[in-house]
Nucleic acid binder design. Structure first.
Lengths: 342, 342
DNA sequence: CTCAATCATGGTAGCGCTACCATTTGTCTG
DNA sequence: CAGACAAATGGTAGCGCTACCATGATTGAG
């Protein structure tokens, strides 16, 4: 004898309202919306009319509960302000904007523990796919990914042992290529400057080191790093530190473009000629690298494409066509500019 | 005689499992998790133990369906890569990271239609709160916000007619202040350079114009704008256009710091002395403004705080204590630097 | 010591949707 | 033209959780 809970939903139309108005069963409305091919032309039109008239929008919560699958992409990135991840995320958004999938972003703040916590939270939603930055998950996070029951794409890097799929490039090779370029240009005392030494930065450093060692020029005093988050002003400071430590420095491979810009500005200020006295190479090739004076050589990475490609792979897997190539290396390009042209 | 749908959920524990293990009713588990104060110390511990042992995580979809309210903050921004919004979003994330609320971001791409569409989608989820950038919603979007049935915070700007709450500052005043500073420094032929002339940019331009007119110095040929998205390289190009149009230019107020940086680089390249020949002012005061050579005067805005403050206001409203002051002006500060010191 | 008020706990009935059948209708084969 | 089969539609029973009410235990006032 309980009366129905008088529309706690706040009165928005439900699938039953649409069904009534269209004179069909609720399930047919559901089908018309999700698998239009399985409903006759006639009914489909009728139902669409009812939907439009009522302004019906399916409740994703009810949908997820009933189908045990939410139309959500979970995305885990270590930072929201870092331009690099922002571009990846933009690629993901653009690729999904016309799909029914929503996006849930988690910010791990470069913390493995936080990543685990967020995977736990995401998992409880039964997402349609997970896209996570990096390949260095904790064992526990890796287990959560393996048991997620949905396609998983690790992005930003490639590596030997994907949880499921991967899209990225080799940071080691990027670091090595940048350093070799400086060597070929005739620089010898080449420093490495890096902030926020996350795993990707570490691998770029390793690439730098490999190149320097191969040339018999590696010296630990050439390396200046800090765990502090990267910024242009930090780049300037680190460069000053590096110069103080090693006044004969004649080149720097900067872990990213912000740092490189900071270096460039400090050179201006200290009247150090770039590229004559010091060669500068950045990483990522942000727009401003080509504009700065002098323009800065940088390693161009395909961040937006990493986003779009990872979505494409996940969508294919959801549709039942997991891509044959589970690890996609999008590579990078060294863009030579004035800052290393001497 | 239908057997239950053998755990379509994929076997993760439900509230019933926890209840059984703890020897209590399901509803008590639900309460222990949401309103611990209403469950006795004893049971609470027992339940917590069962939760930990089973690794139970509540299903947010079921929760949202049953309570007609999702623990989701909907956030609508016009761009994901624009540093300004990225900072606001970061503030929002940081403020909510310890709460049960998830965040759903929508990218409107500066389009009113897209904003409407996203509000529709968000609305179907019954979010706990909505945070939207800007105050220039279409009438239809405004209606959607008014009927959202949850706290709404408009951010980035302040204005006379909030849907519910507002956090921001006056872009008009910002533009005027920047321009007045240039005037006071003795510059006369002051140009305005702006890309992506969204409503906020328009108001900064209006502020610039007001200051110039008050000084009897306004000339439409001093204004150079484009609807193209902003970038450092675009700043350089627009500055060249501006100079070509008005070779006697002796100052520029740039609609944002990217543009200002592009202007600075072009000045370097063309051997134009900043600040002697040309004064440059930016907007937002990104980190690099203080590092560049010369350092660039800019209008510092409190982007991160806009994010944190908007969340605080929304949370208060959710808790039933809507803030007395519904429109919060966080202001801005003109930071004087070398680029206008002549 | 009684009775009302309070507190702690539980049962039931949905929230809005879809998976899983069942049913009806039309279509083709032999 | 019967029988088999596919296509189109519908009914029922949950998905996992919480709102609402009911119940029993405890407390305090008179």
């Amino acid at each position: 004898m309980t009366r129905p809970r008088s529309r706690r939903g706040g009165g928005r139309p439900t699938i039953a309202d649409v069904a009534r108005k269209a004179g069909v069963g609720a399930i047919t409305v559901s089908r018309a919306l999700r698998e239009p091919g399985r409903v006759s032309e006639d009914l489909r039109r009728q139902i669409q009319a009812a939907v439009d008239e009522l302004g019906y929008v399916p409740d994703p919560n009810a949908r997820a509960l009933a189908s045990a699958r939410a139309e959500v992409f979970g995305v885990l990135v270590p930072s929201l302000t870092n331009n690099v991840f922002a571009e990846v995320v933009r690629g993901i958004y653009d690729s999904l904007s016309d799909s029914p999938f929503r996006i849930q972003i988690g910010n791990t703040h470069y913390s493995g523990l936080e990543e685990e916590r967020l995977l736990q939270v995401f998992g409880s939603q039964r997402p349609a796919a997970l896209i996570v930055a990096g390949i260095d998950q904790t064992p526990s996070a890796r287990r959560l990914l393996e048991n997620a029951g949905c396609p998983v794409v690790q992005v930003m890097e490639t590596g030997p042992d994907p949880v499921d799929m991967m899209v990225g490039f080799s940071h080691f090779d990027g670091g090595r290529t940048a350093t070799e370029h400086l060597l070929q240009a005739g620089y010898r005392k080449i420093g490495f400057i890096g902030a926020r030494m996350d795993p990707r930065s570490q691998r770029r450093l390793a690439g730098y080191r490999a190149a320097m060692e191969a040339a018999g020029l590696f010296d630990p005093r050439l390396v200046t790093t800090t765990p502090v988050p990267s910024s242009v002003s930090l780049g300037r400071e680190l460069f000053r530190d590096a110069l103080a430590k090693m006044p004969t420095l004649d080149g720097v491979f900067c872990n990213n473009d912000d740092i490189a810009l900071g270096v460039l500005f400090e050179c201006h200020r200290a009247s150090i000629d770039v590229p004559k006295q010091i060669g500068v190479v950045g990483f990522n090739d942000l727009d401003m690298m080509q504009v700065s004076f002098p323009s800065i050589t940088s390693v161009r990475t395909h961040r937006y494409e990493i986003g779009t490609r990872s979505v494409a792979m996940a969508l294919a897997a959801i549709a039942g066509n997991p891509p044959e190539q589970r690890v996609v290396d999008l590579g990078f390009e060294l863009v030579r500019r004035e800052s290393t042209a001497r």
